[in-house]
Design a protein around this nucleic acid. Structure first.
Lengths: 154, 154
DNA sequence: TCTTGACCTCAACTAAGGTTGAGGACCTAC
DNA sequence: GTAGGTCCTCAACCTTAGTTGAGGTCAAGA
């Protein structure tokens, strides 16, 4: 096995702590890249380790791989990720993280207010009528429509 | 269509704001229950609306349906969810929410500390060596193994 | 030479939280 | 008596983030 051209996928797996299958997966998704040796085996620049580290931090912050890929698209394929690059990325993600934290805190506060109240009124309870629903997936609540009963004893 | 016995699935969908398919799904997962009329159509007790509301709050707090189902298993099938029941549930979930918030805040703080530092050192950077990895899914980081290079310029 | 170990590709599977569509039943109104 | 609307079941599909397995290649060592 010729060792020209960088790290093998096994070495990257070992050093980064992620599975070989995950490395293949990240590559398919365009998050990292490799070259091939004469035997068609992947060879990675050592900078891939920093990229994987960054991916993992972003994932812990709750950012989907798709968005991580978009954010990292501007990074050089081979050259070391610079401090400036990392600053840019981390500031972007920190802002998103702040949002997530703030949203959870608002929910937490409402929950606290509702403990002991127990109203869960369809039209009045703030816990049920959030102005910050996580993601606009699906039709969403329609509690404020004209037929929403105000006094339903459900 | 006989209207005996409670709300139809369409009415529940309309009032709760979730799709009929989601209601069927929740029922298959044991989160809610219904009876059937002579035409084999579902009929829901009005209390299902409060249950769905509670499910949605828990989902916003990041709790998976499986756990929500477990927590709600003790609730009466037909009777109104009591204030005490809601207190119990919301206190359980609030604790989990606190955990999530705390974890994200620790990450946020580390991120702040690392912005401008840019080290991302495999063995030293706290951002990469968390003691609070989200979920123990997969093999996890092995950065502290004996072969982890301390001075890798990646 | 033969086995072992690391690698390759591609397809299928997992879990969560549903959605979509096919094919059929039933009741009401025109 | 038939069209429309709502309901039923079951199977298949979707996304995300990967894992698992089959079948094949390649190089080193006994």
């Amino acid at each position: 096995m010729d060792r020209v051209g960088g790290l093998t996928v096994g070495e990257v797996a070992q050093r980064s702590g992620i599975a070989v299958s995950a490395i293949h997966f990240y590559e398919r998704k365009g998050l990292i890249s490799s070259s091939r040796n004469s035997a068609n085996h992947r060879r990675y620049s050592p900078t891939v380790l920093r990229k994987i580290a960054i991916i993992q931090v972003a994932q812990r912050a709750g950012i989907p791989l798709r968005e991580i890929a978009d954010s990292m698209a501007f990074l050089p394929a081979e050259a070391k990720v610079s401090v400036e690059d990392w600053e840019q990325l981390s500031q972007d993600w920190a802002a998103g993280l702040d949002d997530r934290i703030a949203r959870l805190q608002r929910l937490r506060k409402l929950m606290d207010g509702c403990i002991g109240c127990g109203c869960l009124s369809l039209s009045k309870c703030k816990l049920l009528n959030p102005d910050d629903v996580i993601g606009a997936n699906g039709p969403g609540p329609r509690f404020l429509e004209e037929d929403a009963p105000d006094s339903l004893d459900f």
